[in-house]
Simulated assay, not measured.
Amino acid sequence: MSPSGSMPWRIVSALSITHLVSYGTLFYAFALLIEPMERDLGWSKTALTAAFSLALVSSAFFALPVGRLIDRGYGRAVMTGGSVLAALLLVLWALTESYPAFVLIWLAMGAAMSALFYDAGFAVLALNLGLLARRGITIITLVAGFASTVFIPLLHILIEHYGWRGTILAMAALNIGICALLHASSIPAASKPPRHESGSRAVLPSLSNPRCVLVLPAFWLFVVTNVLQGIISTGLPIHLIPIFLERGFSIDAAVAAYAVIGPAQVAARFLTGFGERAMSLRGIGVATMALSALAFLLLPFVPAGSWLILAFAGLYGASNGMLTIVKALLPPELFGREDYGAIQGMIAMPVRIAMAAAPFAFGALWAWWGSYDAVVALCLGMALCSLATFVLNLALAKEP
């Protein structure tokens, strides 16, 4: 596929839909299914969420091999196989009565997540769209950003009418009937990856071995930045409403503030993706980290009942939304366009492990300190550190 010219809407629209379904059924659905499973099977919330965390850890170890396969031109096989595997595991989940089997199902689900979530889709676009990948990635994140908006109410209705087992079987049907078919029909078949022009922007002259980036301080600074922001973006949402309540806000105000985050993410992604002429990608990255730090600088000073809580939610949501774009698009600019999938896999491994531990770590910090003040202070410290490491990263990666 040509790296320039008109947007190849077939693959972009297909991946937008499949990411919406994959995130809706494999990520956001779990929160709705915890309560009915706990009631019917007698398993605790801790036991259930532990299995989900293991899936995130498992996905970290599949990230690199999945990226390498996509770099070699096997994106269709990887993503189609991921959807088939997800559907099979969902069927097994719907039938399970054994907790050890449930844990094994979610360990295997990590492989499906690695093949279906953003990193895999972005790598497919980078390989097949070339310079158009930036716009395609933006479109995918805009559509997939509505996964919770679409699937939370939809799955809630299905659970009420068909129970949690029937709902999971419906989720399996969506992964086969929509995702697997679209992946098989829209992603180009295996082919030799295109070689980029020697004049393309890159720190390394050649990445025939993608592990060459491991010797670059800029690479590790980028990993640290993403680990810190990943901890915030995964750990905070689960605890955010309790944080608002502890600070004196009503449940209605807390829910209203939480509801601002999603639209702020989508709006920021839109402005980031289609406003590249106004600001460079590196400038957007600095703004992303600065907005995160500003949000947590503001939060401790927001009095109970103040509308400023909406400003915090908007700043946090905007930063979170922009971060997805920066993580996807900046590595080729910093480390070269070759072996995109493998490099993203190496970045994703420590990030996903940290993300898996974040909700539990935030809860443990709250229990140890006796309030969420320590969690807010930790988030502020991590946001400031991520800003510092990102700026230093840009300085080290700057071309001579």
Rank of each mutant, 00 (worst) to 15 (best):
A202E: 05
G314M: 05
A354M: 10
A101Y: 01
C379N: 09
A218S: 14
G275T: 06
V213N: 07
A14S: 15
V124Y: 01
A395M: 14
W366R: 13
P331A: 11
R337V: 13
S386Y: 01
A63Y: 01
I353T: 10
G145L: 08
T80M: 12
E338C: 13
A29K: 03
G230D: 08
I137Y: 02
E246G: 15
L207P: 10
L308W: 00
T141K: 09
A31K: 04
T324P: 08
W369T: 10
L365E: 02
I159P: 07
P188R: 02
W366D: 09
G363C: 11
Q265M: 14
A311D: 07
A304E: 02
G166T: 11
S198E: 07
A304P: 08
I261H: 02
D40W: 00
A63W: 00
P3T: 10
P303E: 01
F312E: 04
M322P: 08
F244I: 07
D252R: 08
I157Q: 15
Y99M: 14
I232S: 12
W369A: 15
A367E: 09
S98G: 13
V78A: 05
I140C: 11
A358M: 07
P3V: 10
L54H: 05
A357I: 09
V391A: 15
T49L: 15
T167A: 15
V326A: 12
P205Q: 06
P242L: 06
N128G: 10
L116T: 06
F222L: 14
I139A: 12
G317R: 01
L396C: 14
V260Q: 06
E35C: 12
R269F: 02
C212E: 10
T389C: 15
M279L: 14
Q265E: 11
I17R: 05
G283Y: 00
A29L: 09
G75W: 00
T138L: 09
L127R: 11
N320C: 13
S280W: 00
A14V: 08
L299T: 05
M346C: 13
H183Y: 03
L297W: 00
S186W: 01
S386G: 14
F270L: 15
S114A: 15
A295C: 09
G345I: 06
R195W: 02
P400V: 12
A268V: 08
P332F: 03
I231A: 12
Y162G: 15
P237T: 03
F222S: 10
V375G: 10
A172D: 06
F390G: 12
A190I: 08
F61G: 13
L216N: 08
L131H: 08
T49A: 15
I243E: 05
L310Y: 03
T25N: 11
E333Q: 13
L394W: 01
L131N: 12
I309R: 02
A354R: 03
G314N: 04
V376A: 09
R195C: 13
I168Q: 07
F30C: 11
S44D: 10
Q265P: 13
S59V: 05
L20A: 08
V224Y: 01
G199T: 12
F117T: 03
A364P: 09
G314T: 04
I140A: 11
T138F: 04
L334P: 09
A120P: 08
L174H: 02
N128K: 05
E97S: 15
C212Y: 00
L182T: 04
G121S: 10
